[in-house]
Design a protein around this nucleic acid. Structure first.
Lengths: 302, 302
DNA sequence: CCCCCTATTTGTCCTGGACAAAAATCAATC
DNA sequence: GATTGATTTTTGTCCAGGACAAATAGGGGG
């Protein structure tokens, strides 16, 4: 019922699904439409994927995650595929970032954290976020796309950064001040760093931040905001969150919340596209959080 | 391509797969063979599962995970099914837990964290985990199932607990000692608290823990373990992770890792079922981590 | 009681067709 | 020329119903 061992021959379709994240149906329909992958068959007629094809599928998945379309990928030959994987738009590596990336690639989690901690003390929390963490996270993402950093190493980065940021935020928590801000994301959103960075920007300003973490259902966000008497609901969206889904959800949330509760929308790709929905405040970057905050305070007192 | 919202009508087969851990093929073949579930159909002829059937499927999955066979379950009537399920040893609410739950329901995140922090100081990190956090997390989960606690409140609990645990762990990190333990979960696993609790148990013992957080692809776990020269890979599984998927993945991981790297498997429901896969060390609870650790040390020095 | 053989149960895989959401392309307007 | 709206193409998921092997249960010997 389940492949076992599979000594050298290859992998079952279930194993490929596990390893690549591509659904079984997708693998079969690709084979039918594009002629790749073209697995061998065992005695029972079941697909057996050789290791090379699995590796190629992993690469293809990476390209698709980057937004490339299957049609183009399968039409291309091996040469241009290699090229796409290697086409680093060479973000000018600042020397500081190169150092972090080197630590990451060598899995020196302790040193990495120490280094982050030192920079936090040197820069202060807010500049730490805007000047170091923001750009560095982008850089790590790019390095992952280029295949220079593995998923495991990206996770390592996230973990260490979480520890450092949470430690700093914890010390600043002030439960009595205003505004009261509820931070969270929609369901399907996987990335929590944006929330932590936002909290790190707002906490030193004396805002009372409460984070629900990622993936809070819409109805729960609205209910929590009302019953917790929050002034602002801040939503974070990572760059590949479907814009359509975001706008639909935001419209519904706006409707469920009383007008005096502001909704802050973080996520560069949502601000770029002109989508001037009423009653929403779009924030292009972390610095914009500060102006939005002072704006709220001026309004409140003025 | 993907269901969204699904206001009240019901759930797609993909949603049911996500929620129950039962594969799409299994759901279809049950319908064919046993006549249950019997989902409605939408305009396009696709299955739409009403909430009651989804709930029943969840119950059935629980019974199967306990070792009961589908044939018996589907042959039984509703009464005896209730009876099978009813033998749950009603968790006696300790007064301390009631207090935490009350804070949670009133969204007093600050007081909640303070309270957790005080208990941490009072009990020490390891007893804090085994005596308070473990039982309390189960209690919160049950309260959620009973509808007494919302998703938002559960998230709030997770966030506060993360802050407290990470703060405590950070101070203990010791990068030079042995064994070096890599902590993470398989893809599809959503819950990170188990990892943090494990780290909290191990760090005071002088183990060098590195957490990759949740959802690390199999190949990346193996690669990171080897290149990082880890002695142990510890995987956490929450109670509803599909056992089948877990065992398949563990077998493959065992194959990809050198024999001298131990694999520790955390998750009560995986240890209950007799699944004596060779080369894996099953841990029924947090306390078992300590005996596994001393076992490793005796072996290493003995 | 344990071990081996057979029968049943049960989950996964298969094929090939269909369709809707998302993306891309094209058309028309300010 | 750029933005909006309609149309076409691409692409992932779903369906039916048949097949088969691993897992389990049942039945004798030793």
């Amino acid at each position: 019922m389940e492949e076992s061992a599979e000594l050298v021959a290859g992998h079952s379709i279930a194993a490929v699904e596990r390893d690549t994240g591509l659904q079984k149906d997708t693998l079969r329909v690709w084979e039918r439409r594009y002629g790749f992958p073209q697995p061998l068959r065992d005695a029972n007629g079941e697909r057996v994927y050789p290791p090379e094809q699995l590796e190629r599928l992993r690469q293809i998945k990476r390209l698709i995650d980057q937004g490339m379309r299957p049609g183009k990928i399968f039409a291309a030959d091996a040469a241009s595929l290699e090229e796409w994987l290697g086409n680093a738009p060479a973000g000018t590596d600042e020397p500081q970032h190169a150092e972090f990336l080197a630590l990451l690639r060598r899995q020196r989690s302790g040193e990495l954290r120490q280094n982050l901690q030192q920079n936090l003390l040197k820069l202060g929390l807010q500049r730490f976020v805007t000047e170091l963490v923001g750009p560095l996270s982008v850089e790590v993402g790019l390095a992952w796309k280029r295949g220079e950093v593995s998923v495991a190493e990206e996770h390592l980065y996230t973990e260490q950064l979480q520890t450092v940021l949470r430690g700093a935020i914890q010390a600043l928590h002030n439960p009595t001040q205003r505004p009261r801000i509820l931070l969270t994301t929609f369901p399907d959103e996987q990335h929590s760093l944006g929330l932590l960075m936002a909290e790190a920007m707002l906490a030193p300003e004396g805002a009372c931040c409460t984070s629900l973490g990622i993936q809070t259902p819409l109805a729960d966000i609205a209910h929590a905001a009302i019953s917790g008497e929050f002034d602002i609901v801040a939503l974070a969206f990572s760059s590949h969150f479907p814009a359509r889904q975001a706008h639909a959800g935001l419209a519904e949330l706006r409707q469920q919340l009383p007008a005096h509760v502001e909704i802050w929308v973080g996520g560069k790709h949502l601000t770029e596209r002109a989508a001037p929905a009423a009653g929403l405040i779009y924030l292009a970057d972390m610095a914009a959080l500060l102006s939005a905050l002072s704006h709220w305070r001026n309004r409140g007192t003025g």
